[in-house]
Simulated assay, not measured.
Amino acid sequence: MPIHRARYPADWEDIAKAVKEATLWRCSKCHKQCLRPGEGRGLNRSERALQTLTVHHANFTPEDNRIENLIALCAPCHLSIHRGSRGNVSLGQLSLW
């Protein structure tokens, strides 16, 4: 869900995948089983989005990629954390949910 891609390291996709794999593709907040790469065929875009695992920076700083700062969250839980916070999600993104 990067907003300002320049704030993320070049290997962000690898870092995020490692965090997701460490949780066995489960949300750390609600424990929902999320889709692994290649899964979700036959689901519509909204259904896939609800089951997508993302990686959240606990301190809201995309440059801080220490493992203890990264949390695997399903997209709905990730957006709920950013609602009303000082996070980096725009109002337009929140309205998608």
Score class of each variant (00 low, 15 high):
residue 1 M to E: 04
residue 2 P to Y: 10
residue 3 I to K: 11
residue 4 H to L: 09
residue 4 H to S: 12
residue 5 R to E: 09
residue 5 R to S: 11
residue 8 Y to D: 00
residue 9 P to Y: 03
residue 9 P to L: 02
residue 10 A to S: 07
residue 11 D to L: 04
residue 11 D to M: 01
residue 11 D to S: 08
residue 12 W to G: 00
residue 12 W to D: 00
residue 16 A to K: 13
residue 16 A to P: 07
residue 16 A to N: 08
residue 18 A to P: 00
residue 20 K to A: 11
residue 22 A to Q: 13
residue 22 A to V: 12
residue 25 W to C: 06
residue 27 C to W: 07
residue 28 S to H: 15
residue 29 K to F: 12
residue 29 K to W: 11
residue 29 K to I: 13
residue 30 C to E: 09
residue 31 H to A: 14
residue 31 H to G: 10
residue 32 K to G: 12
residue 35 L to D: 08
residue 37 P to K: 11
residue 39 E to L: 15
residue 40 G to A: 14
residue 41 R to M: 12
residue 42 G to T: 15
residue 42 G to V: 14
residue 43 L to T: 14
residue 47 E to Q: 15
residue 48 R to A: 15
residue 48 R to F: 15
residue 49 A to V: 07
residue 52 T to F: 03
residue 53 L to F: 08
residue 56 H to M: 08
residue 57 H to T: 08
residue 58 A to Y: 10
residue 59 N to V: 09
residue 59 N to H: 11
residue 62 P to N: 09
residue 62 P to E: 02
residue 62 P to L: 08
residue 63 E to Q: 09
residue 63 E to D: 06
residue 64 D to M: 05
residue 64 D to A: 03
residue 70 L to K: 03
residue 72 A to Y: 01
residue 76 P to F: 02
residue 76 P to E: 01
residue 78 H to S: 04
residue 79 L to M: 06
residue 81 I to E: 00
residue 82 H to K: 09
residue 82 H to R: 09
residue 83 R to A: 09
residue 84 G to F: 02
residue 84 G to H: 04
residue 84 G to C: 05
residue 86 R to Y: 11
residue 88 N to I: 13
residue 88 N to Y: 03
residue 89 V to G: 01
residue 93 Q to L: 12
residue 93 Q to V: 11
residue 93 Q to T: 14
residue 95 S to W: 13
residue 95 S to C: 09
